[in-house]
Design a protein around this nucleic acid. Structure first.
Length: 325
DNA sequence: AAATGATTCAACCGCTCTAAG
DNA sequence: CCTTAGAGCGGTTGAATCATT
């Protein structure tokens, strides 16, 4: 037995709302409140489904809604909460006064996901891609690691190309175009010659990632030492440094000394049991410092989480500037 | 200036959860 | 306990807008 529709689809209007409809809905809700959405369109004289009315009200007409660009603080809050809660947009939105789950979801899908990917962070797990690869590598026999590395080249091709080329693309294109007989792509020729070398570097990086203890050099961000440590404390604390001091340890961990995988565990919903929601609130309130000056905020934006020096595969940054690793 | 592609975001869809009877 | 309806959620779509060629 299928569910009955919430309204007669033939008799309801769909699509964009007109100002007249908005007025009718707003004034009706102002008078009668939002009880029983099914009756609201009928009583308000709207040819709309109750569900549509609710959506229009909660996402657009509510007087307490905040319009316009997300602030840096809001952006960071979303990233933080998403790393803990995943795609629980309504919970995330509840921490952002004036923002709806739809707003947050749209902002995540259109902006934040790309930003994170652009700096080499997997937006699903909030870990560096290099770290994820190293994690997978530990479960494989050495010959398979090479295959993994090869596969990674394909999987993350777009992200890597973006990272590797964004600063030198013009230069490379100039050089390529200047050289007679070169193909249109700056990568085609070097790819073939350097492929072996590239694969060796990647394998080396992955091997180190599997072997090294938790060494965390301080002069790099998002490098494969993160991955090599196989210790998300390192990556998370580095990550947290990039996003304005958010720490995955306390209050999320059980104690001050985080276990190697405590960060990993705290990135999922298990972290939200008990009184942690309250701790989350505390933390968020700390972060949303209302006294922050505009100048300070702008400065911080310039050095925001997304300006991290992303180094993948344990390669020197100079190598990253070459067309193929 | 026009065409095309990319991006944004309001709105819809289908599902789950919850409470009432 | 079961059924049903209402509410809410997350995923997806597509029209409007913006950027690029």
């Amino acid at each position: 037995m299928g569910r009955i529709p919430c309204c007669e689809k033939e008799s309801v209007k769909r699509g964009q709302w007109t100002p007249e409809e908005d007025n009718k809905l707003s004034s009706y809700i102002a008078q009668h409140g939002t009880r029983n959405w099914r009756l609201i369109p009928k009583n308000a004289g709207l040819q709309r489904c109750g569900k549509s009315c609710r959506l229009r009200w909660t996402n657009y007409l509510r007087p307490d809604l905040k319009r316009g660009q997300f602030s840096d603080v809001e952006e960071q809050t979303i990233v933080k909460l998403h790393s803990v809660l995943g795609n629980r947009w309504s919970v995330i939105a509840a921490q952002l006064p004036g923002r709806t789950d739809n707003d947050v979801k749209n902002y995540w899908n259109t902006k934040l996901k790309k930003k994170l990917t652009g700096v080499g962070i997997d937006p699903v797990t909030h870990k560096p891609f290099s770290h994820l690869m190293a994690e997978i590598a530990t479960t494989l026999a050495p010959p398979q690691v090479a295959h993994l590395a090869e596969a990674a080249l394909g999987c993350f091709k777009d992200e890597m190309l973006h990272l590797l080329t964004k600063k030198r693309i013009d230069f490379q294109l100039q050089q390529t175009n200047a050289a007679p007989g070169n193909s249109a792509s700056p990568y085609v020729d070097v790819k073939h010659d350097e492929n072996e070398d590239t694969m060796e570097k990647i394998k080396l990086g992955l091997s180190r990632a599997m072997q090294e203890p938790g060494v965390q050099p301080h002069n790099k961000t998002w490098d494969s030492a993160l991955a090599s440590s196989m210790n998300f404390v390192g990556s998370c604390s580095r990550y947290s440094a990039s996003i304005n001091g958010f720490q995955c340890g306390p209050p999320f961990g059980n104690d001050g000394e985080s276990s190697p995988w405590s960060q990993n565990m705290c990135t999922r919903s298990t972290c939200m049991e008990g009184d942690e929601q309250g701790q989350l609130h505390e933390k968020l309130e700390d972060d949303n410092n209302p006294q922050e000056s505009v100048g300070a905020k702008e400065n911080r934006e310039r050095s925001s989480m997304f300006s991290t020096n992303c180094v993948l595969w344990d390669l020197p940054s100079d190598d990253l500037m070459n067309p193929m690793v």
